[in-house]
Design a protein around this nucleic acid. Structure first.
Lengths: 197, 197
DNA sequence: CAACAAGTGGACGATAGCCGTCCGTTTAGC
DNA sequence: GCTAAACGGACGGCTATCGTCCACTTGTTG
């Protein structure tokens, strides 16, 4: 579950690496998560190494590229999001399913600057298109179900919905108000009210 | 009106500059507008000079700093926005006033990447705090009026409103959909519906 | 416990992008 | 024509990041 990223990175080692090497990979992954949360996609290799308490050489030797590391962490994260989407699709109440997913989606994007950027950036710096396409497709179905159930207005496409949800996430938009940590909640509520049939 | 930025930049010349010099200032201002629209706040001095068809030396001689130039253009722009806000405050129907302003606000932000960034960036790269504070204060009053008139839900603050409006503007959020030029319209409609009492 | 392969850290050279100055050349205006 | 004003853009300086390389350290195994 949470070791996926590590496994992914250790997979292509020919023989079992030494204990300290494994430990360093773990540290690097944790550091990458933090850096991704706070700094975003363009967290530098040096920053990640510093956070991990590890030399820059170690980073490159262990994970090959800065991008490979970030990619592994992001894939793990997006996987979790996909799971939430599938759970939402199974909900009895279509509208409630959409609400649940939207909440998770926005919360996770809000929690990590890097995840937010990864889901937005259309330029594929890291190759995440496969997973994010899957995610899109889930949203499309969720919106479809909610509309068929008559719970959601039909003059709005799932693309519009994606747009609106993304807009609720804090960015450097906001007219200069320091956003409280949970600021997105009220925004999401308004948007969902606006989407209701 | 539209010559404000130019006047602002020519103001501190001791004696009347030569005709070609004035022409170049105009070109620089127009180029800065374009660059601001397309590239955003960190349009480089060289890019602006290139767009203006002018040497980089000329830019620095004429406008002093890259920042002074951008600032002049942005101030002009924000001035227009303020005017729209004041007009909206005079509307008979408080809700309609809010809707009108919101529309202008979002459209203008959507039209220029640089304006959008300028209104968001809390770090004061260019000193626009005065004008943007004025703008905030207008929005606060618009929201207040709409709520007093019973036209807008009261569990939402003007800060939340600012947040939501900013969110509707295209950014690099959007799950990888190339946004149509007028994409923000539908988003704005949903948000306004959600804000209605 | 020794010896060596595996691993480590971080200085370093390379690359890139932007800033703003400076000076030889051009041009407007009298 | 003549001169002061203006021009263009090459250039040096600065900052940031990347990723390599090698002298040194440490885990592991017999």
């Amino acid at each position: 579950m949470s070791s996926t990223a590590i496994d992914l990175l250790l997979a292509d080692e020919a023989s079992r690496p030494r204990a300290d090497a494994r430990r360093n990979v773990e540290r690097l992954v944790m550091a990458a998560r933090e850096a991704l949360d706070e700094t975003g996609l363009d967290a530098t290799a040096h920053e990640i190494a510093r956070r991990a308490g590890v030399g820059i050489g170690t980073l490159y030797r262990r994970v090959g590229t800065r991008e490979a590391l970030l990619r592994a962490v992001l894939l793990e994260f997006l996987g979790g999001m996909l799971t939430a989407a599938d759970r939402a699709l199974d909900a009895d109440d279509a509208w409630q399913g959409l609400v649940d997913f939207a909440t998770v989606y926005v919360r996770l994007r809000a929690a990590s600057c890097g995840v937010n950027e990864a889901l937005g950036d259309s330029d594929a710096r890291l190759d995440l298109s496969e997973t994010s396409t899957a995610l899109r497709e889930r949203l499309e179905r969720l919106v479809g179900k909610a509309q068929e159930a008559g719970a959601m207005r039909t003059d709005v496409t799932w693309q519009d919905t994606a747009w609106l949800l993304a807009g609720v996430v804090p960015g450097d938009h906001t007219i200069g108000l320091t956003p409280g940590g949970e600021q997105w909640r009220i925004g999401l509520r308004v948007v969902l009210d606006g989407l209701r049939a």
